[in-house]
Nucleic acid binder design. Structure first.
Lengths: 206, 206
DNA sequence: AGTGAAGTATGACAAGTGTCATATAAATCC
DNA sequence: GGATTTATATGACACTTGTCATACTTCACT
């Protein structure tokens, strides 16, 4: 199984989806963008576009969760989060605020299926599956953040809420930065999150 | 000028965009959804789909900013924000987490223009204009939140950062809720935001 | 009554969409 | 080395998209 073509397609799809959204990314765009053979797309993704989107979401999930976990492990919750935000910042700046998060794209820009006859019935199921995947990725990120906070002594209920806040606010802030073509929102949120987390952690050791 | 047709189209476009995204919302969808005459769309929106999207963004902007400002004025920053979040929660629940924010949709799901010959040049400008509008709406919401916080004595730099955090985290959380088909993330973030704001405000009166 | 504008209806256009059937090329295995 | 799976190529399909030209209706105003 030649997987480099397949992997290039998945990575390219994730990238394009993060920039323009799900429906603005056609399969022909993906093969153009990645210089992969168009004839292979049906071969590597027999279930068609929904499958490609699904794999792109899972790919993007790992692409974030692995460095996130590493940063939190090596630097602790606060410094690790700052490093993670910094990597988002770099991505925004180097793409002139064109690239975003493909998982958010799936949550917001729902895939509208084939024009064919089967219609509504399958589309709803396919869309639900994609939402499940996106939700799984978000949950994964939250779990990683949660573990880091708990490791520093924060009680579970508070840590869970803060993990949700961190993931949600970063997702939202990245979107704000793209709209503003500026990293200012991310810098502001970064500062506030640091304050909030260090406040919360300082209360536990008292 | 018969504006009820026009207004129905704008409101319907905003609603559909908030549920499925920009590119998944076709003009034919809008006239189907709003039971408005298809022949009129070119009449009311001579600049075509970009114009309809633009008006939908501004419409959605006011639809949020007006009740937000009212709630903050009447109830103060903390209780007002809680009331505002509660209204978001209602919208999510009553639409079984299908509806979201059309402004976020514009920021994430970029409009891909007509298939015609003019191509790239105009598209980039049109997309930039839409991003400007979305950014203006986000900035408006932040300004309203900022004013409420300053009214309670918070110094400007901190208030600005917190206003950004509030807008970004609510946008992100609504997306999380849609992916999870659950209001839990919003409830968690609501609780944390309350804690954060009351902490920040209590430090000013000391 | 009549005139002109505002609104509505309908169909055609060029182009793009995902998918599929078929055909060729490459690589793997006995 | 031949056979069989894997991969790539190409073109056709049924359909949707935004836009436009053209017609018909409605309505206000003089």
């Amino acid at each position: 199984m030649n997987s480099t073509t397949r992997n290039k397609m998945i990575a390219g799809a994730a990238d394009l989806m993060s920039r323009r959204g799900v429906n603005a990314t056609s399969m022909r765009d993906v093969v153009r963008y990645t210089a992969t053979p168009r004839g292979s797309i049906g071969h590597h993704f027999p279930d068609g576009k929904p499958q490609l989107i699904a794999e792109a979401v899972m790919f993007a999930g790992k692409q974030v969760s692995i460095p996130l976990e590493k940063a939190l492990n090596e630097l602790g919750a606060i410094a690790g989060l700052k490093a993670f935000v910094a990597s988002w910042r770099r991505r925004l700046v180097t793409t002139t605020f064109e690239a975003g998060c493909p998982v958010l794209a799936v949550a917001v820009d729902h895939y509208v299926g084939e024009p064919s006859d089967k219609a509504e019935a399958l589309d709803a199921a396919a869309q639900d599956h994609l939402l499940d995947l996106a939700n799984g990725v978000f949950a994964d990120w939250q779990k990683i953040m949660l573990a880091a906070l708990r490791r520093e002594g924060l009680p579970a209920p508070r840590a869970k809420r803060l993990a949700t806040l961190v993931v949600a606010s970063i997702e939202g802030t990245v979107a704000l930065c793209r709209a503003a073509r500026s990293a200012l929102p991310l810098d502001q949120v970064d500062q506030e999150l640091e304050l909030i987390l260090s406040d919360a952690l300082s209360q536990t050791t008292k």
